Amino acid sequence: MSSLSNVEKLFTVIDQSSERIKQEEELTYLEALVDTGENLFHQEIPKDVSQVTRAFLEKEYAKINLDTMGAEEIRKAFQLAVLKGMKEAIQPHHAMTPDAVGLFVGYLVQKLMQQKKEFVLLDPAVGSGNLLTTVLNQFGEEVQSFGVEVDETLLRLAWIVANLQKHNVELYHQDSIKPLYVDPVDIVVSDLPVGFYPGDETAQEFKVFAEKGHTYAHHLLIEQSINYLKESGFGVFLVPNSLFSSEQAYLLQDMLKERAVILGMIQLPMSLFKQESHAKSILLLQKNGEHTIKPKQALLVNLPSFSKKQAMGSVMSQMNAWFSSELKRS
């Protein structure tokens, strides 16, 4: 059986079973997806489900065998279902990192972590876990990881997706701007939610705090990530293209000058985004410490479309050369 048909087969099962649970329990699609994911993980259906629905679910679940599927197949099938569920969700933070970007972030993590046999990774805005598990699927058991998410439904999805893919992930349901329950990590990877953080009392503990109006949540998350990085640890963040040109940019720049080194800024292809205002870049930084490297020249790249293989290959060669010469990681 091909990889694609495995993904399609699993998606069809979780989609049909989620729709059935959604109707019976009067839930949102994402909430029903959580329930069907838990049924699959625990390999049992709750006792309070009606006999008719139980028979339907048992028939659907019997169509698949998760033990024969790869982690990427499971991730992609759930990703399709999450994308469907997010179309009915009105929350602006319900968005998913494109696959091509997740794979590219994984490449960056490999380059930055090349000298470590084992390392610890944190995503402070883990969402449904798609970016985190896309990165983890490019490594073996050498990665211990943590995820934090304020939205309970998304966190439950992340828990299911990570468990079904057999990843070593600890997940926490909390506001990432407040003190976290994790020890310092080697690297932080996150697609940062963009917008204002309403908790001014919490925000005023940070150097990026804006005295007028609310502080940008993505600024706070960058500073919080640095708080939870080990000395000379790395940050890989998806950030808005306007990160260093917004009205609060000077606060972020002052904090970064004091606490970290900006290694690079990689602008993602505009074709990935519906609107130019939603376009993002990848910010690479390293926290100050004894082994922090200050490159002679930061890595500044405008990525071509991921579908343009020749142009992409040329850019990747230049990036590999930069990592070899500036960070001496290869």
Rank of each mutant, 00 (worst) to 15 (best):
F206H: 09
L251G: 01
K166L: 15
T153K: 07
Y181K: 11
D175N: 06
S245Q: 13
Y228K: 03
A162R: 01
S225A: 13
D175Y: 03
M255D: 11
E223Q: 14
T202F: 07
Q224E: 04
G199A: 11
T202M: 06
L256I: 10
L164Y: 05
E152K: 12
H173P: 00
G195L: 12
E231V: 07
A217V: 10
H173E: 08
Q165E: 15
Q267L: 10
S190E: 00
E170K: 15
L251C: 07
R156H: 10
R156K: 15
S176T: 14
L192G: 00
L243N: 00
D175H: 03
P240D: 13
V194M: 02
S242P: 02
L155M: 09
E223R: 07
G147D: 05
I187M: 02
L256H: 03
D254H: 14
I262Y: 00
S271G: 07
V189H: 03
I177M: 11
F209W: 13
D200C: 05
V261E: 11
E258M: 09
L221D: 01
V185C: 02
K166S: 14
L221W: 07
P184M: 05
L180W: 06
V189Q: 02
E205W: 10
L238R: 01
V148T: 12
A249G: 03
Q248S: 10
E231M: 09
P179W: 09
E149T: 08
Y172L: 13
Q253W: 07
S242N: 13
M270D: 12
L251R: 07
L171C: 09
A217N: 10
P179D: 09
Q204T: 13
S190A: 14
S246K: 05
N227Q: 14
G199K: 12
E247Y: 12
E149N: 06
I266R: 02
H218T: 05
I160Q: 00
E231S: 11
L229C: 08
R259E: 15
D183I: 09
K274H: 14
L256M: 10
A210P: 05
K274L: 13
D186C: 04
I222W: 02
Q275S: 14
V208L: 05
V236D: 00
A210G: 08
D254E: 15
V182M: 03
V169W: 01
Q224R: 09
P240C: 08
P269T: 07
H214C: 10
